[in-house]
Nucleic acid binder design. Structure first.
Lengths: 156, 156
DNA sequence: TTAATCTTGACAAAGTTAGTAAGGATTGCG
DNA sequence: CGCAATCCTTACTAACTTTGTCAAGATTAA
């Protein structure tokens, strides 16, 4: 149970990009130096981000990348999805993967558990944007519980 | 991001065991037939469960396994912990793993994000017991939000 | 034209997963 | 006792995933 380095590096780089790209496109060399990541790996990562419509590229000298939309419209969920694929706790209900799919009933209780956990995580990651991360202001209030007044800020 | 088959098989087998073991010890052959899992794999799994103190073994003919404590004292979190190790979204803050640990500050915002997500998942899985699963009654209300009256039952 | 960038695809070392296999130890029962 | 049922332990391996590296190309600003 892990979000891969690809997803995590990508997210960190995007937060950095989000802070820098008001001044114009940011090139990968700068990003790689700021974030201590290899340029080659970042290229792979940004290629995926571009195909997912999260960033735009500007080719040629003085080129680089910018966010394709507002920083408060890009969620952690979108980023992880683009880089690592959909979050999946268990594949037992996903028939087109090599793994034997569970032979039990469709309402198998552990299946329901994993699916529910998945939905909750997805929900949490959908509620946090690049802007929230850049400003270091985010919480884990789930979207489904709307009546909860107090924000439960995470600071440690 | 995945809970391994080891963890998932183990959990399913334990729910079955929870239902059957009132009558006395249950042997792995029976469990493996009911749940369509290989005996060899189950042996590996139950070995870990035993070392974690979740089940007790009775050796010899007519032996088998029983839960070591009440079914409502064994949480999903404990089971997954025993079989897959602690849930970890990101190792960037864990210094004794091979992966380069993040060079940023300890309060690195993505680090805080992953750690918070981890805590939330842990919290959810700690709130669900084998009994809940056997009875197919559980929800994802987090422990930390106590004022929430309505239960949000997961049934699909 | 040239240097700075992005673009694309191939490749590989290391690690993880999902089991399989084999032999041993313990104990109930006839 | 002796044997069958059962747990116990360790070793092994094929397939897959992760984490990058590398190289050659395309595009564009200056």
């Amino acid at each position: 149970m892990n979000i891969s380095t690809r997803g995590r590096y990508g997210l960190r780089a995007l937060v950095e990009l989000s802070a820098l790209s008001r001044e114009g496109p940011v090139n990968l060399r700068d990003l790689s130096e700021k974030q201590k990541m290899s340029i080659d790996y970042l290229e792979q990562i940004f290629n995926k981000l571009k195909r997912a419509g999260i960033v735009q590229s500007i080719r040629g000298a003085k080129g680089g990348y910018v966010l394709a939309t507002n920083e408060d419209e890009i969620t952690v969920s979108q980023v992880i999805n683009a880089l690592d694929g959909p979050i999946s706790i268990s594949n037992c209900y996903n028939p087109n993967l090599r793994e034997k799919s569970c032979t039990g009933p469709a309402t198998c209780v552990t299946r329901v558990l994993w699916k529910g956990l998945e939905n909750t995580i997805e929900s949490m990651l959908s509620s946090i944007t690049l802007k929230d991360l850049r400003q270091e202001k985010f919480d884990f209030k789930l979207k489904r519980s709307r009546k909860n007044g107090k924000k439960n800020l995470l600071r440690s």
